[in-house]
Lab assay of single mutants.
Amino acid sequence: NQESVVAAVLIPINTALTVGMMTTRVVSPTGAPAEDIPRLISMQVNQVVPMGTTLMPDMVKGYAP
């Protein structure tokens, strides 16, 4: 099972992602793949992402898996 990126903390809208904001988990439906964490760092979210929420590609500005 592939791990997806999950918010480790509450991420406010327009916040640039840091490694400490993200964790990985096997979830369904799958979100952004765990191996993309290095690409996701410094990208901004376009909505509030509550802690424990799977990071879906459409939540991150300019990100395409």
Rank of each mutant, 00 (worst) to 15 (best):
L17W: 06
K61D: 13
I41H: 00
S28F: 15
D36C: 10
Q47M: 09
A64R: 15
A32I: 15
Q2F: 14
S4N: 01
I41F: 01
L10V: 07
A8H: 07
P65K: 09
V48E: 15
N14T: 08
S4Y: 07
R39P: 03
M22Q: 07
V45E: 05
V27C: 08
T30Q: 15
P65T: 11
A32S: 07
N1E: 14
E3N: 07
Y63D: 00
R39Q: 10
A34Q: 03
A7Q: 01
L10Y: 14
T18Y: 08
Q2N: 13
L17D: 03
E3P: 12
V6L: 07
A34F: 05
P65S: 12
A64D: 11
L17H: 02
L17I: 05
P50I: 09
V60W: 06
Q44A: 07
P38G: 11
P57Q: 04
M56G: 00
M56Y: 06
I13D: 10
V26N: 11
V60C: 06
T30K: 15
G52L: 07
N46I: 10
G31C: 02
R25T: 07
A7I: 08
S42V: 07
G62L: 05
D36L: 04
M51S: 10
T15D: 00
Q44H: 13
M21T: 01
D36M: 08
D58P: 03
V45I: 05
Q44Y: 14
V27T: 11
P33K: 06
V6T: 00
G62W: 07
A64W: 14
L10R: 12
G20P: 08
V60N: 04
G52P: 03
Q47G: 04
T23L: 12
K61S: 11
L40Y: 01
V6M: 01
Y63Q: 05
M22H: 06
A32F: 15
D36F: 05
P12M: 09
G52F: 08
P12A: 09
R39D: 04
D58H: 15
L55I: 14
Q47H: 04
I13H: 05
M59V: 01
M21V: 02
G31P: 02
R39F: 11
V5H: 04
P50D: 08
N46F: 09
L10W: 12
L17A: 02
M56I: 05
T23Y: 11
S4P: 03
Q2H: 13
M22L: 14
M21D: 07
M21P: 06
V60R: 01
R39M: 11
P12G: 09
M59D: 00
V5E: 01
P57S: 06
I37V: 08
V60L: 06
V49K: 01
V49I: 14
I41P: 07
N1A: 14
V6R: 00
Q2P: 12
V45R: 01
T24I: 10
L10T: 14
I41T: 03
T53Y: 13
P38F: 10
Y63T: 01
V5Y: 00
M43H: 10
S28M: 12
Q2D: 11
I37G: 03
V26L: 14
